[in-house]
Every structure is written in C-alpha cells, then in structure tokens.
C-alpha cells in the first residue's frame, strides 16, 4: 500500500510517498520512500510511519507569580497518540512561584519516561 505524507524537516515541504506493507504481526514495514529530495526526508517518513512522536508544550497553573500560568514542555518527544493523556496530567497540576527554568514540574509523565519541565523562570 502507498502512504502519502508531507516532510516537515525543512521549508521545501516535499510530498513523500512511502511504499508499505503490513507484516504478519501487524507492524508496518516500509519498502521504499520516494518524492524526497534529500536523505532526511526518507528518515522522517520511516519514523513518522512507524513511531510518530511530538514535543508537547502547554502551561500549568501558577500561584504567586507575575502571571497565572507557567509555560512547560516535555523534556523529550512523546508518542503522538499519548498527547491528550499527557495534557490531562498537565492540566491537573498547580505550582507555586518561584520556579526556575528546567525545574521538573511532573516526573515521568504518564509513565512515558519523560518529564514535564518549566520552560522559563518565574
């Protein structure tokens, strides 16, 4: 089967086509990638089709700071299909100022081995 995707690595925005098949154990095997104009496009397509990940940024409630929200970010990309689970944990948190940039706000969010950290000092 053919899968189409847009490369997001650089402004070229190459239209990629991956030739894939589903193996016996249900995993996706990628036979070839076309449409890319550099090797990064192929790497992106393979990662995106087998294990898509995203960095998530949001805010948590802040008490006693200049603003009522503190910006936070995942310390590493998380699986794309867990974004809303991570958001649910982020929404439940409230912290008190002062906070330093890179302070851990949630440890091991959703058991993913990734922390939610402050993205500024406040």
């Amino acid at each position: 089967m053919k899968k189409e995707l847009t490369c997001i690595i650089c402004p070229m925005g190459c239209r990629l086509e991956a030739d894939c098949e589903t193996t016996e154990n249900g995993a996706l095997a990628i036979r070839s990638v076309t449409g890319n104009t550099c090797p990064r496009g192929e790497r992106y397509a393979r990662a995106e089709l087998s294990y898509p990940e995203r960095t998530v940024t949001s805010t948590v409630v802040l008490q006693g700071g200049r603003y009522r929200r503190l910006p936070v970010i995942t310390s590493a990309p998380i699986p794309k299909d867990r974004i809303f689970d991570v958001m649910e944990e982020i929404r439940a948190v409230s912290v008190c100022a002062p906070v330093k940039i890179h302070d851990i706000i949630i440890e091991n969010v959703c058991g993913l081995g990734v922390n939610i950290i402050a993205s500024r000092s406040l």
Binding site: T55, T57, P71, I73, I101, S119, R120, S121
Partner: peptide
C-alpha cells in the same frame, strides 16, 4: 537548538 519562546527570551 529548538527552544520555546519564553526560553529563547530568557
């Protein structure tokens, strides 16, 4: 490296 806006400002 890729930073958030607040991190870049800091």
């Amino acid at each position: 490296e890729e930073l958030t806006g607040p991190s870049y400002a800091e």
